[in-house]
Design a protein around this nucleic acid. Structure first.
Lengths: 295, 295
DNA sequence: GGGCTGCACTTTATCGACAAAGAACACAAA
DNA sequence: TTTGTGTTCTTTGTCGATAAAGTGCAGCCC
């Protein structure tokens, strides 16, 4: 089985949502933009839709015949790319299941467990190794270094350096920079979630990601921006399986974010640094606490 | 052709140097340690040496029959691992040959040019991508971001942050830490090279690498330590093909290093910071200058 | 003339296969 | 009782093959 056709399936599903009975789908190039795939894939989708009796397709006209029903969609798990599947399985294994430091990682075993070829696993591990959680012994196995307190501390130390630098750069952004607009949008989103915190506290993760990425972006430094990927993935998976005190933790963090955003808006470096430090040390504390309860 | 036997060939060559006529080679496990390979490889080497009439091998006795001659050695290029070959070729291409930013990188073409399979090239590119010089468009090609002034500045900005942090950590190392011994050894090596700078100035690169790695190590932070790999590879290849003013540049840098080392030995944070900043800004200047002459 | 379609072609993602390299274990020697 | 050897088995590194996905060009339609 070369290449899964997950790109096709995912785009097909998304394309189904564009169908409006009586109307015609837009041109092929336009669909490419809408779906973010190449024309070849768009044409496969159109062909398939003809087969399914969803549209009549003749040159420029792509008349919609009926609305899609549930059975028209591909099952969601078939739309995940291989690397996503591998990543999830792997993270589950090392963050939950026995992820003792020093453990050996076996490419073949992992591949069999997930049901994919060794090449895919290998490439995943290589990509993943930049996160500092695993290490390769050449001509031999990988070693799991483990999501330990030590790891968390090293990660957060660098994060603090970078975030302070980025936040400082943020205040010198010109007034017309789109980041200011986005910052205001984010502030509103925070306020909205806060207003209904008891039922929406889980949305914090997304806000957190957006805010911090926006700030790192201001550094204009690819190493700083790329580093945030490590933080994001670690926080993402860790808190996904570790929801103790999430309501309380997230509520507090949203308030800190709002202070941080206000500080950025004043453009006063000292105010920004203070708010930034406050939030970061609180985030550090939460992570370390959740680590000790987990262990 | 699965797996090149470069490990074997390289170990074989190194093993040839251990041969002393009249004596016997040590035990298999000991050879493993000496050569840094597994017993399987050691045994292949011994078999091969028997075939070549270099030794008589009977259980524990491995009596050396004759000294190796030049023809006994495998040619050096056959002892380089595939990834080394790929790395060199690739770096040559992007640092010297037309490495215009935005250029597309074609896995297949690269593989053919180097004469290896696509998998190896692919894995190299994935590993290399963490250096921030290339970027992947999923399901499509890689994009060369280019070794530009911009890149150099981003790299050096982070380097300065990390090195200052590491140097600060260095002064708080306990007196019995082996780093102090290594530091003194390095100081002597610097003095030696300096004494004969006109003929030995090219040895500076190695000293530079050793000193900075020693200092980063003190941070105890894997992200800081790993980041130094990026700096090392960039400086390595850049100055390897760019030797303008090398004599002068290296002489100056050695003096700065000696100041830096002295400062570390005083264990006074301010002195260290000053020496560190001085050296780093001078290194930055050299790199930026050599970039403008190259472009 | 500018955008759209049809078609042929290129490149990537993934697999299975296989030799090189590593690891495990029982037996032998000192 | 420790250390070394013989043997067997496992795992990694690399390749070529192939379907999926992307790209480029010639001609067509408004």
């Amino acid at each position: 089985m070369p290449k899964q056709n997950t790109v096709f399936k995912d785009a097909y599903n998304r394309c189904l949502r564009l169908l409006v009975v009586g109307e015609s789908l837009p041109s092929e190039p336009e669909l490419c933009n809408l779906l973010g795939v190449s024309r070849t894939t768009v044409r496969s989708i159109l062909s398939q839709m003809v087969e399914a009796g969803l549209i009549e397709w003749n040159k420029r006209s792509k008349a919609v015949q009926r609305s899609p029903v549930k059975a028209d969609f591909f099952p969601e798990h078939e739309t995940n790319s291989l690397s996503e599947v591998i990543e999830r399985t792997f993270m589950k294994r090392i963050l939950i299941g026995g992820g003792e430091p020093g453990m050996q990682i076996n490419e073949l075993e992992l591949a069999r467990e997930i049901g994919v070829g060794t090449t895919s696993v290998r490439e995943f591990l290589i990509r993943f190794s930049r996160f500092g959680l695993i290490e390769k012994r050449p001509n031999s196995h990988w070693v799991l270094k483990g999501f330990t307190r030590q790891f968390a501390e090293e990660l957060i130390d660098v994060r603090e350096m970078f975030e302070l630098k980025s936040a400082a750069a943020f205040v010198s952004l010109p007034a017309e920079d789109p980041a200011w607009v986005e910052l205001e949008a984010l502030r509103r989103a925070h306020v909205e979630v806060l207003a209904d915190i008891d039922s929406r506290y889980l949305e914090f993760s997304e806000l957190d990601d957006r805010l911090h990425r926006l700030i790192q972006q201001a550094s204009g430094n690819r190493f700083i921006i790329d580093f945030y990927d490590i933080i994001a993935i670690v926080f993402h998976y860790h808190y996904q399986w570790n929801k103790a005190n999430a309501r309380e933790r997230n509520g507090k963090a949203i308030l800190e974010h709002l202070d941080y955003i206000e500080a950025l808006k004043t453009r006063r470096p000292e105010a920004v640094e203070a708010a930034c430090r406050l939030h970061l040390s609180s985030a550090r504390l939460s992570l370390m606490q959740s680590l000790s309860t987990a262990a």
